[in-house]
Amino acid sequence: MPSPSDIEKVFEWINKVKKFFEPFKPEFRDMRINYRTSKSEISLALHISNSLKRRIAKVEIPAYQNFVVSEMIDESFSRVQSVWRFDHGKWILSPSILPASEKYLVKLKGEVPREILLNMVRIQPAQNRDQTPELDKYWLDSMIRDVDFIEQIYKKLEIDEVNLAVHVGVQRCFSTTFPKEMKEVLEASQRWTRAGYGRDRSEIQRAWSNLRKVTGASKIQVGDIIQAIYELTLGNIFAEYLLLDLPYSLGEIKREERFMGLFPEKMSVEACADLNLKQPFATGYLTFKKKEYMKKIEDFLSGLRK
């Protein structure tokens, strides 16, 4: 569970920044935390009267924890351009150049320490799939650990993109789909290369004629097999075979290699959900349409045979 000092850490830079805005009566409007990137965004309403614009020549705020002023909007919801500048580690505003509006919304972006995010939300995907002949399924579970903590930070806090990494096994999709003839090509190639590094000339000859015989019967080359694995594990291709229950949506998809080579054992699939005080938990499933995916592998390979 988050501790009171965790709240201080979340607010550390925000409170410091707020002090600099005191003459403009700052009010927190809402706060968003992106769980995936650990970035936070806070909206602060400011009241900058014309007399203040004349009186205060410059506001300088040190960039605590590298926060960024991302946007300023006036009361007509128009973006106020080029009024903030960053100079020598400070954010600087000259109120005199602001437009006629007196009410503004300023958006500040900063970071939330990772360990606090982990204390705010609990996430867990299933360790093992449930299976049918067509599908592999993984349950997903995420929950805010303590709503009081979130409420203390701000009532309109949103925690976006709470991400769970699900490890979807794909190796067996390839190993069970690749035809037997490919294994023969591989074995023959391996025998030939092994022989090539040895000194037994007659074995080199035998291995070579065996390789010719096997490859003569098959149009598929070893390189084709590698290419197939590579192309079919590209994130955008693989995404077509995944389904996610709401409120989850698909995040990043990448190969998860045991080695750093070309052979992914699993795909790492990110499932993301937005949590907030109204929706403090999210459950659902990630479904991998393995039968369709294996059909895709088969089609890809039969394309190579033509």
Partner: peptide
């Protein structure tokens, strides 16, 4: 220089290591 051989071994591993759907 021997990457060819290693890669072949790895590809064959791919076939041999997953003899059935639930076993590696």
């Amino acid at each position: 220089k021997r990457t060819q051989e290693m890669l072949l071994s790895l590809l064959l591993d791919l076939f041999d290591k997953n003899p059935t759907n639930n076993v590696e």
